[in-house]
């Protein structure tokens, strides 16, 4: 079987005074072996909640998976106990975060943190783990790896810390790496280094990567397939070439057109009017309708389904048989009325 990760109808929410508030609304996607899949969307659309759901790291936040399944190599992660889950995390399934400082222990030397992760998951002696740690640091392009083993996190620059995080994340040769905005906090020249390191280790280890980012440039640069999220839903997904060459959803089109491109020579940028609705104040119907330039009557009444079209999914009435639906709704409402 080629599918490494299959997320099916995942719904995740947070407990509020007046009950559960869902922020991820039934999303489904998959990552194949050796494939880099991007999840892209603006802040608050549910990218991080999705990744934390897969890793089952929601309890700190305090969020909950409300429905759906996360199949990883044939096992449903949502059904595992915390103890079973620990065996996967950092081993078969690894994650890197935006801010490496928060996930490195500030009072432990880099070498010890790496070694402990390795020893926890791989059957190695202290000495072997130490050697393996050094070779991992070298593989992510850290110069003077032996010295860095003796450094504390605060002694390293942001780019170096992110490399260390990658080294820890890949030290047990995971088959899937989830990278949540791994380069967002870094400078462009350092970002270029980190992305090239990630692509190299991905190729060597045939690792699958779920790359979470708000940056369309990063998506175009590294991903094979892309999932576009808006307001906790998948609105479009396609191969990276297809998505940029022939985007379908008005939100995706708007997003691509909003990014300034060097050498484009235009005076005004395309801009999507308005802002993302907040989870407590979602419009009925299509969640993008208040900002959409092609909005129709039905969009305001009924939310479109995510329709599959030859490896290119899209959630928009422009691509669906809306006439029948309108009749449906009208009949339904007159029957009720």
């Amino acid at each position: 079987m080629n599918q490494l990760l299959q997320v099916k109808n995942l719904k995740t929410g947070f407990r509020k005074e007046n009950g559960m508030q869902n922020v991820v609304h039934g999303i489904s996607f998959h990552v194949n072996k050796g494939e880099i899949v991007g999840i892209v969307g603006e802040s608050g659309c549910g990218k991080s909640v999705t990744s934390l759901s897969i890793m089952r790291l929601l309890h700190d936040t305090p969020g909950e998976i409300v429905d759906g399944s996360v199949m990883f190599k044939g096992e449903d992660l949502t059904a595992l106990s915390e103890r079973q889950m620990k065996k996967y995390r950092g081993n078969e399934l690894s994650m890197i975060f935006q801010e490496p400082m928060t996930s490195l222990n500030p009072v432990l030397k880099i070498g010890r943190q790496l070694r402990e992760t390795i020893q926890l998951h791989l059957n190695m002696s202290k000495k072997e783990a130490h050697q393996h740690a050094i070779s991992m640091l070298k593989s992510v392009g850290i110069p003077r790896a032996e010295d860095v083993m003796n450094d504390y996190p605060h002694q390293l620059s942001g780019g170096m810390r992110q490399r260390v995080m990658i080294a820890i994340a890949i030290s047990c040769n995971p088959s899937l790496l989830i990278a949540d905005e791994p380069t967002t906090a870094l400078d462009v020249t350092i970002q270029a280094q980190i992305l090239s390191v990630l692509k190299d280790v991905q190729k060597q280890n045939e690792m699958g990567i779920l790359m979470i980012t708000h940056d369309l440039g990063v998506v175009a640069e590294v991903c094979d397939r892309v999932v576009v999220m808006y307001a906790g839903r998948i609105v479009e997904s396609a191969t990276v070439e297809e998505l940029f060459a022939a985007p379908k959803h008005p939100y995706t089109k708007g997003l691509i057109a909003s990014v300034p491109k060097i050498g484009q020579g235009i005076n005004r940028l395309y801009s999507i009017p308005g802002t993302v609705p907040s989870p407590s104040n979602m419009p009925t119907g299509c969640k993008f309708a208040p900002r959409c330039s092609q909005v129709m009557e039905i969009c305001k009444i009924k939310e479109p389904e995510l329709i599959q079209m030859k490896e290119h999914d899209c959630r928009c009435w422009l691509y669906q048989e809306k006439e029948q639906e309108v009749e449906h709704i009208e009949k339904g409402s007159s029957a009720r009325g």
Partner: peptide, 25 residues
């Protein structure tokens, strides 16, 4: 030149010569 070549281009068709700088700032 390095700075310019480091910007990820939002277009997968653009294949460019990238100068990946070594070392930290």
């Amino acid at each position: 030149k390095a700075l310019l070549s480091s910007i990820p281009q939002p277009d997968p068709k653009v294949k460019r010569e990238q100068i990946v700088l070594q070392g930290d700032i």
